[in-house]
Simulated scan of single mutants.
Amino acid sequence: MTTRSRLTVLAGPTAVGKGTLAAYVREHHPEVWLSVSVTTRHPRPGEVDGVHYHFVSDERFDEMVAAGELLEWAVVHGRAKYGTPRGPVEEVLAAGRPALLEIDLQGARQVRETMPDAFFVFLAPPSWDELVRRLVGRGTEDAEERAARLDTARQELAAAEEFDVTIVNDEVRRAAEDLVSWTRTPVPTSKRD
């Protein structure tokens, strides 16, 4: 069975596990190309420039925006800038490979404007308490940053209905395999429940 190449956009609230799912897909499904975002935030422990993100200065990020090099971009949690380089996405789709963007809600909305044929997947936590536990448990943000991220997460959870499908991240392997199956499914003609 042949499938046509398409862009799948994965978004969801902070600490829901988007990065964990992306890492699983990268390791177990190399046929699915994952975009590497640019960001102005500093690397977290274990993050590698060019693998997890392209870490750039504010000045370089602004140059990329001005030159139209980003498919989408946003200031996230009122702090760091994040964006998706346009060129690599267009090249991969033209080559016929399925592509996956792991981005925030603001970015997903921008991609919907520029690439309405993309398929949008919302990653949800099993519960609010679990989301808080994951954020606190990763220990990468101070109390002020956690509070800002949780405020944003409340707003992001309310946007799930904007997406084509919702996957609950209650078990990484299952959720990631479900996500990969959506990258191979023909683009639906109407919204999915």
Rank of each mutant, 00 (worst) to 15 (best):
V76F: 03
S57E: 08
F55E: 08
R79I: 02
M64I: 04
K81C: 11
T84K: 01
A67E: 10
H77S: 10
P88T: 13
L71F: 04
G87T: 14
Y53T: 02
H77T: 05
G87Y: 04
R79K: 11
V75D: 06
A66V: 03
W73N: 10
R86D: 05
V56D: 04
D62R: 11
T84S: 11
E91K: 15
G83W: 02
V89I: 09
A67T: 06
G87D: 11
A74F: 10
A80N: 08
A74T: 15
Y53A: 13
R86L: 15
E90P: 02
H54T: 00
E69W: 02
R86G: 06
M64A: 13
V89G: 02
V65H: 06
R79G: 15
K81A: 11
A80M: 04
D58N: 12
V65D: 05
G83S: 11
Y82E: 14
P85H: 07
G68C: 09
G50H: 10
D58W: 02
F61M: 08
M64T: 03
G50D: 05
V92C: 00
G68M: 07
G78L: 04
L93Q: 03
V89M: 08
V75R: 15
E90N: 04
V89Y: 00
E69N: 05
V76W: 01
R86S: 02
G68R: 03
H52Q: 14
E63P: 05
V76Q: 10
L93C: 07
V76L: 03
G83T: 15
A67S: 12
E91N: 11
M64W: 02
D62K: 11
E59A: 14
L93Y: 10
E72M: 14
H77R: 14
V89L: 13
E59H: 00
G78Y: 04
V51C: 04
E63V: 14
E69T: 00
P88V: 09
L71S: 13
E59Q: 13
Y82C: 14
P88M: 09
A66R: 13
V92Y: 01
F55G: 04
V65A: 03
Y82K: 08
M64D: 09
M64K: 06
K81T: 06
D58M: 06
P85N: 13
L71N: 06
E90W: 03
E90G: 07
L71P: 02
F55R: 03
P88E: 14
L70Y: 12
E91F: 05
R79P: 01
P88W: 10
H52W: 04
G78F: 07
R79A: 15
R79E: 10
L93D: 11
G50F: 01
G78H: 03
V56K: 11
P85A: 14
F61Q: 03
E72A: 15
S57Y: 13
V56T: 12
G78I: 09
Y53Q: 07
